[in-house]
């Protein structure tokens, strides 16, 4: 690091600090405040100690929502990351159609999340939707509103549709930055397609892959709007993820104490997992030579 040490740089950071503190620290203090208190209305609060935390950690509802969320995140990560890499690898690096492709691929990312839910609602319904109608015509029973399996398939398909492009664009950006000389050297060395990927392309896109992985994990773990619009958490509770459960509790039932305690546990889980991922993934392969074929 050749950056000079200068504490005056803090003056440049202060606006951001104040702005984010307003939106982050004050609300978090409110949440912490609620999580230790009980209320019977009339704005009267009583100290409740760790009662809410114990409630949350012993409730099946919380663990089920957490489990569903983890399963969902694992499934979409294991689909989107390899699929994204594969599509990025097959994309040509030059040509007049490349910008067109990139724009079309980025399009789902810019659709408001509840419209994404609406699009898939319209697309998946058996009576009016292309997907639902086609599946029914093929002779399968399909109804994402009443069948648990169908609901999960539809939500996963929706998420793959919505977010795989992010992985593609990130990997593609990493791939186009590899100098052509690397590939020529690999060709001279007679490297196979796999070793080109393993020793040239993968190390080069490692940085962006970490970003893709983190972003996809975080966003899938806090997913709210799309499944809420599509299934509303049903059928039953089968697609009630953590955020949906939390909003139900906080705004629907106005159970401030349990909701606040659940918020804190939820946020701690997200932070811990992200921190671990970030540390582990930025250290993996650091000591390995970046591109062996280069020599």
């Amino acid at each position: 690091m050749d950056k000079p040490y200068n504490n005056k740089a803090w003056f440049l950071v202060i606006p951001v600090f104040l702005l984010v503190a307003l939106s982050a620290i004050i609300p978090i203090m409110t949440v912490i405040n609620y999580s230790f208190q009980d209320t019977f209305g009339n704005n009267q609060f009583f100290w409740a100690g760790t009662e809410w935390f114990q409630d949350v950690l012993h409730s099946d509802r919380f663990w089920n929502a957490l489990g569903r969320n983890l399963v969902f995140s694992m499934i979409i990560l294991s689909i989107e990351i390899p699929l994204g890499i594969a599509i990025a690898l097959t994309m040509p690096k030059k040509g007049i159609w490349v910008p067109v492709c990139l724009v079309l691929m980025a399009l789902p990312l810019l659709i408001p999340w509840n419209v994404v839910g609406t699009i898939w609602q319209i697309f998946g319904r058996a009576d009016i939707g292309l997907l639902g109608h086609t599946i029914e015509q093929l002779g399968f029973e399909y109804n994402y509103a009443s069948n648990v399996f169908d609901a999960w398939v539809t939500i996963i398909l929706m998420d793959v549709w919505h977010w795989t492009s992010l992985v593609v664009l990130l990997c593609y950006a990493g791939l186009v930055s590899i100098p052509e000389a690397y590939y020529q050297a690999a060709k001279i060395d007679g490297a196979s397609r796999w070793s080109v990927f393993r020793y040239i392309q993968l190390p080069k896109i490692r940085g962006v892959l970490i970003i893709a992985f983190l972003l996809r994990f975080m966003d899938s773990f806090m997913i709210y709007t799309e499944p809420f619009v599509l299934t509303g958490g049903g059928p039953g509770n089968s697609t009630t993820f953590m955020s949906i459960d939390l909003v139900k509790q906080a705004i629907g039932q106005f159970d401030l104490g349990p909701a606040a305690a659940m918020s804190l546990v939820y946020q701690l889980i997200v932070l811990t997992i992200c921190y671990v991922f970030f540390t582990v993934m930025s250290n993996v392969g650091v000591d390995k030579p970046d591109a062996r074929v280069e020599d």
């Binding site: 609300p27 806090m222 939390l246 401030l256 918020s263």
Partner: peptide, 20 residues
């Protein structure tokens, strides 16, 4: 810390934001 706010679930902030 800044980045951790990008990771914060919006659902956590809904109610406090409303009150703030």
């Amino acid at each position: 810390w800044l980045l951790s706010n990008r990771m914060a679930p919006a659902a956590v902030f809904v109610l406090p934001f409303f009150q703030l």
